[in-house]
Each structure stands twice: as C-alpha cells, then as structure tokens.
Write a protein that binds this DNA or RNA. Structure first.
Lengths: 218, 218
DNA sequence: TGCGAAGCGGATGATGCTCATCCGCTTCGG
DNA sequence: CCGAAGCGGATGAGCATCATCCGCTTCGCA
C-alpha cells in the first residue's frame, strides 16, 4: 500500500531527514530486541515521533526492515569470510556458528530474515553467500572426518533455530545461556567413537517449510 | 469467576453427562494439538456443543485442564517407573527422555504443565515425582561415569523444551524430526573423550523463570 | 403422558489489540 | 515573510477472544 508522498525523488527537508534517521535507529533496536513482529506504532513511539511520520517515510514494512538490517547483514558476511580461513574445517565451523549465533541472538530481526526461509522475502543474497560458505565448510569437515555420519546441511539451520529460540526465552533471565547448548549440539554433531550415524534425515523442502513456520510466516 | 451453576453437588442429567464427556474429549484433543492456549469457544466447537455448555460445566480453565490431562499425567508416571529399572543409569535416562519427549510432543498441553515451571499452576505432584526419578537417574549416571562433567539437572528440562519446541514447528511437516535432535543433544550431554566440561551453569531460579516465560506465563 | 426443572446454544456486547489514515497545526528555508 | 513540507496522534476500521444471558428444547419423575 504505497503512500503518495513516499520515496520522493528530491531531497528531504533537514528536519525530515533527522527524523528519518531516528526512525531507522529505533527500528533497528526494536527489531533486534523482539524480531520483525514489532509494529510501526511501536517504532514511532521509540523514535519519539508520530506514527504518521513513519508511514510517510516507509511505504511498507519491507522497506523499513531493509533500512534497519543493512548493517547487521554486512557483519554476517564478514564473519563468514573469517571462518573459511581456518585450517581445520571443523574449527572454522565452530567459529562460524558461534559468531552467527551471537549475531542472530543480538538481533532477532536478523534471525527472522536469515533463517526465515523467505518468510520475509526481501531479496537478501547476503544470506545465500553465507549459506554457501557453510556448505563448503561442512563438506570439508566431512572429508577431514570430523563430521558425524548422517549429518546434513540443514541440520545446522535447525541448530541455529533451536539455539536462538532458547536465547529469546532465556536472554533476559540468563544472558549467554544459549552458548551452552550450542556447544552441546555441536559436540553431538561431531564424529566420535561410539557415535551411531544420524538417521531419518529430511529434505530441503521440509527444512524450508519448517523455517517459514518458525519465523511466523505472514 | 465461578458460575452459580458450576460444580453441582447432585448428579448430572444423562444428556448433560454425555455432553460433559464430549467436552473433556475435545479439550484433550485440542490441548494436545496446540497447547493450553486453546480457548473455551474452540473446545465447544470441536465438541459439537454450545459455548455456554462448556462454561456451565467448568468454572475456569484450570478445571478443564485438570480434567483433560488426568490420563496423560498418569502415563508420565508409568514411564518414569519403567526407566528406573534400567541396569545402567544412562540407558534409563535415554529411555526416559525418549518416552517423555514422545508424550510431551503428542500432547503439548501436557508439556505446558510439565515444563511450565508453575505457569499453569494446578497442583500436579505427578510432575514432581517424575523430576525426582530423573534426578536420581542423573546422579547414578554421574557415578557410573556416563555424564559429561558440568551437566546439571535443569539441563534436561531445557533439552526437553528445545526438542518439544522443534516438534511443535516441524510436526506437521516432518513428524518425528525432533527425535533426531534429541539424539544429538543427549550424545552431547554424555561424557566422552575430548569432551570439555560444560561451563557457565545456571541456577534453579533462572531455569524456572525461563520455563515460565517459555510456557507463555499468564 | 404431562409438566416443571435442568440443560442447551450461540448471538451478543465487552474488551483489547494492531494497523493505517487524515487533517489542523508547526516548522523550514528560499 | 509565507507557502510548501512536514508533523503528531486521535481515530475508526478490522479482528480476536472472552463470558454472559435468555428463549427454547429435552429429560425423567410421577
């Protein structure tokens, strides 16, 4: 539902620009704390601005989300870059997952787009790129014998959901608790003596569908 | 808000009794499928009965919940009884968690009361009893050297939350997927070569608080 | 079989949210 | 100085859920 005066060609008045800035900052904070379900009214309130101002500047939620998540999405890429450099793939994987988890926990909105399986579709190829890095790392880890038999790529996505979901519930009470279970899960995904292969896998379509539900697909 | 004609002393008319039965059955099904958040109207509809009938028979939600969960709660106890009999504590623990998980996944309402940390307080000492069995098993497993260092009792509760939460999101798409991650988590909780002790524990109060939030405390 | 009591259904109003619009007033800046 | 740009937030529409009430039906005793 685009409003007539949204996305102007000319520049904004000085005060309007300042307000826009405030709105983006408020949205970033709010989305980070509570995920993309935060509404326009709330963003406006946190920005110390009328609701009208928010609707005036952003045609729809996607536009606001994109503005609010630009920066965190870049961090995601950087983190991936650092992880591929590890000499042993499993170490890189642990580093990557630890970093991603931290990023997603610190910004639940980012989680919604990164793990949402297109639930909030804005075209984010950053996510694609990170996924590729992860897939490569996984393959290398398998070759190096560190990956438990039967583990598939989407297992990692599920692990991220599990852990970030825990963080969402525990964050206020006991910050950082999620790292404990990330460790447990990763250790369970690693190969080792007496480890039976993982059975009963699942398809990529199933994974995507689950993710969309988890993100609260609109 | 008790209604005047609730909880009668005398017996119900034959048709009324039949309707009550229907309501309890509907509630059991609904709570099982969607957790305790299901409302009276919905229960009534599923029971093929007017809303009034439900309100007439049950003073409040607690009363309905108790009626609907009586049977599943007994199953919980039985399962615990079977688990203590295992010769090796870890095996009993695996059996117990597998069974409990299945029970809670098949009945999300049961999960809400069992893991809710008193969020839906009805006095359910069944849960207490199962907790005791689990604690004993955990202690024995530690003595037998199967438990990873640093694991504490409430870790198991968190694992149950994680796994049942996954089940709630994936159940429709890929039933049984939760067992995969239960296995991974349990393997991660077991002692083994190269397993660093778990660090950064948490208190019982924190665990309880997290559980209440997770259950959507009212 | 008749009849009073018991039970029934579901429309309904209360309540509480979120969303998005509109218009009288304020502020900017040429 | 003044017209355009921008602002705020009250507001009403839309949507859930909850719990009540009352005209009608059904039961089961006598």
């Amino acid at each position: 539902m685009p409003r007539p005066d949204t996305a102007k060609p000319g520049a904004l008045r000085r005060d309007a620009e300042r307000n826009r800035e405030r709105v983006v900052r408020a949205a970033r904070e709010l989305f980070a704390e509570r995920g993309l379900s935060a509404g326009f009214n709330e963003v406006a309130h946190r920005a110390g601005v009328g609701v009208g101002t928010v609707y005036r500047r952003f045609a729809d939620k996607d536009e606001l989300i994109r503005a609010a998540l630009e920066e965190p999405l870049h961090e995601l890429i950087e983190v991936a870059q650092r992880a591929v450099e590890a000499s042993r793939a499993w170490d890189g994987l642990e580093l990557l997952l630890d970093s991603i988890t931290q990023l997603l926990v610190d910004n639940l909105g980012l989680r919604d787009v990164a793990l949402g399986g297109g639930a909030w579709d804005l075209g984010v190829d950053e996510v694609e790129r990170v996924a590729e890095v992860m897939a490569a790392l996984l393959e290398r880890a398998a070759v190096e014998g560190d990956l438990r038999e039967g583990v598939q790529g989407d297992d990692v996505v599920m692990v991220l959901w599990l852990v970030t979901d825990l963080a969402q519930h525990s964050g206020q009470v006991r910050p950082g608790l999620h790292r404990r279970y990330l460790q447990v899960l990763l250790d369970g995904l690693r190969s080792g003596p007496g480890r039976a292969p993982l059975v009963e896998g699942f398809t990529e379509e199933q994974a995507q569908s689950i993710c969309r539900r988890w993100a609260g697909a609109p």
